[in-house]
Design a protein around this nucleic acid. Structure first.
Lengths: 187, 187
DNA sequence: TAGCACCGTTCGTCAACCCGAACGAGTGTA
DNA sequence: TACACTCGTTCGGGTTGACGAACGGTGCTA
């Protein structure tokens, strides 16, 4: 049961609207015109005062060209790739030894460890797992195209990537003898 | 640009509300009371007439114990796969794809993921971690001597080993460019 | 400097969302 | 049969969201 219900959605929406709008490089007036709403309404929404209706927020999602859920859910980092040898924060260094923390474990999460081996050919399309699941992948050898169906990345030996597992995602080996460590995380 | 924006959200919300409510086995009155909204409001929403505000829909999401996004996103196919031959060992086999479950995660355990790279030389002696911790190691390349100080094993690329982490243990690379995935498990 | 265009905010007005109450229908019980 | 209870729907009324207009501020141009 993911408790993303705790935080008030209104402030999240306010932040998301302004963030997505500035990211797109659009003015408040322009977005309001595209969405077909009054710019005064959008101004109040971005200031945090207001309780928009679904249709209003939906129109804004269309105008900003972002999926609706991105406006209400806090912007979770989706696909993250750590290339071999450039891990964020070397945590332990001792004689000829380097440790890199790839993903610390959230409380009460469950992580199962797999090794997967693949050969080039038909890409494997994985159905979504239970909501909230996250996949971590470290390539041992070969090259691999993987990630959510709409956001695929290519990783090689030693690379690390993580992405949500509750959406359709793919695995496709690009070289013979490709294998990887897969850590499946359930909430 | 995922075009999940096309379908009208109101009918989707209406269906989602009724579906999630019946799935939970709750009456309309009960859900309305839990959400703190009038049951007339919920009745109109489930009938498709109405354009709820965010706070109203959020309260319903909390009452139904479902993440907010499930009420607005079209019901994604929640395929829960129970593969043939479940259990430790080969769990999934598909065209050019083999998945092997190395270690199923015990409940309420925490697992942190590291990549460690080592060069031959002086072996790294690790002090015991907190009691109950277990280390899982998958070698990406090279060779490695590791394990508790009194029970060292030698592993190569693609090998997996696990041993208790709450006793003194060692890591020693036997070849240049040795690296491995380390999953540290705390209870 | 005056003029213009656009920016984002604030102010009244209207529609509609949300509410409480009342209503008809179904079920179990004395 | 009469009663009590709960179900989900429908009906007036108040609060509020969405709208349009006007406002001050900024940058560009003649």
């Amino acid at each position: 049961m993911p408790d993303n219900q705790t935080s008030a959605p209104l402030t999240t929406i306010a932040e998301s609207l302004r963030r997505e709008r500035t990211r797109a490089g659009l003015s408040l007036s322009e977005v309001a015109k595209r969405a077909g709403i009054a710019k005064s309404t959008l101004s109040q929404l971005e200031s945090g005062s207001g309780n928009p209706s679904i249709e209003t927020l939906w129109a804004l999602g269309v105008a900003l060209e972002v999926p609706f859920s991105r406006l209400v859910d806090p912007p979770r980092p989706r696909v993250r790739v750590v290339r071999a040898g450039e891990g964020p924060g070397v945590t332990s260094e001792q004689a000829h030894f380097i440790g890199t923390l790839l993903a610390s474990c959230p409380p009460h999460a469950r992580r199962d460890i797999y090794i997967i081996t693949m050969e080039p050919g038909s890409p494997r399309k994985a159905d979504p797992h239970i909501p909230g699941s996250v996949e971590h992948l470290i390539v041992g050898a070969g090259r691999l195209r993987t990630g959510p169906a709409d956001d695929v990345v290519e990783v090689g030996a030693g690379d690390y990537t993580t992405f949500p597992g509750d959406v359709p995602h793919v695995y496709e080996a690009l070289e013979p003898g490709t294998w990887a460590v897969l850590v499946m995380e359930h909430v």
